[in-house]
């Protein structure tokens, strides 16, 4: 192997990388918040919603969970304009991520909701709570607390999966890496650096989500 590794380009291109990191973080943040919200709505619909809504949500969840994210992205960005729904690459990337996380989040949160004993609903009602209050305080918050680790790893998976959005020219970290390697021809070093940055992002995100879990959920009573 007669190859001299050279990371000298890093000095010239760090603003490009930084901008890419910014977009990746932004996509993850928006995708995470909206995706989890969609997941909660869908989980409610599947577990407790009206009968006509259940099969609709089930079909959506199965469709998303059994097709690759890349194809969902292409469908949103290239396919939907045929229906007159035209959007920029960042919006398309965000939409695809929200739809994707929404489906996975739905299944995870639903598992948490269905683990709630039925007596808790009745207990909530007997305390004079409205149905919405019961759902929010008695069902949803403990359910989220129960499945928070699984939901956190799913958010990390979506963040890592967002590398694919470079394929519709959304200027995320992978796009930046592609740009740099096309300028410097230092493909291996560039992708190596980008990979390490993703690893760091994943570790930081995991810790942040764990910290968030500690702050938003009440301390669990000792059993």
């Amino acid at each position: 192997m007669n190859y001299a590794f050279d990371f000298g380009w890093l000095a010239d291109y760090w603003p490009v990388l930084l901008k890419g990191i910014g977009i990746t973080v932004e996509l993850t943040l928006v995708g995470g918040v909206l995706g989890v919200s969609l997941g909660i709505a869908c989980a409610w619909a599947r577990a407790l919603g009206p009968a006509w809504l259940k099969p609709v949500v089930a079909a959506y969840v199965e469709m998303i969970r059994n097709t690759p994210f890349l194809i969902q992205l292409f469908f949103v960005f290239f396919g939907l304009p045929a229906l007159g729904l035209r959007m920029g690459e960042l919006q398309a990337a965000n939409l695809a991520m929200v739809i994707n996380l929404g489906a996975y989040g739905c299944e995870i949160i639903r598992a948490g909701i269905q683990a709630t004993p039925k007596g808790q609903f009745e207990a909530g009602a007997s305390l004079g709570m409205s149905r919405i209050q019961t759902f929010w305080y008695v069902v949803l918050i403990p359910a989220l607390q129960r499945i928070w680790p699984a939901l956190s790893s799913q958010i990390v998976i979506v963040m890592l999966g967002s590398a694919a959005v470079s394929q519709i020219a959304a200027e995320d970290l992978t796009f930046a890496a592609n740009f740099i390697q096309s300028r410097t021809f230092r493909a291996f070093e560039t992708y190596f650096a980008a990979t390490l940055i993703y690893l760091a992002l994943a570790i930081v995100l995991r810790q942040l989500l764990r910290g968030l879990g500690w702050t938003i959920f009440p301390k669990r009573a000792a059993r």
Binding site: V156, L160, G161, A163, A177, A187, F192, A194, T195, Y198
Partner: peptide, 10 residues
């Protein structure tokens, strides 16, 4: 902890 896409590139 890293994207599959990056592993493919590497």
């Amino acid at each position: 902890g890293t994207p599959l896409l990056m592993q493919l590139f590497l």
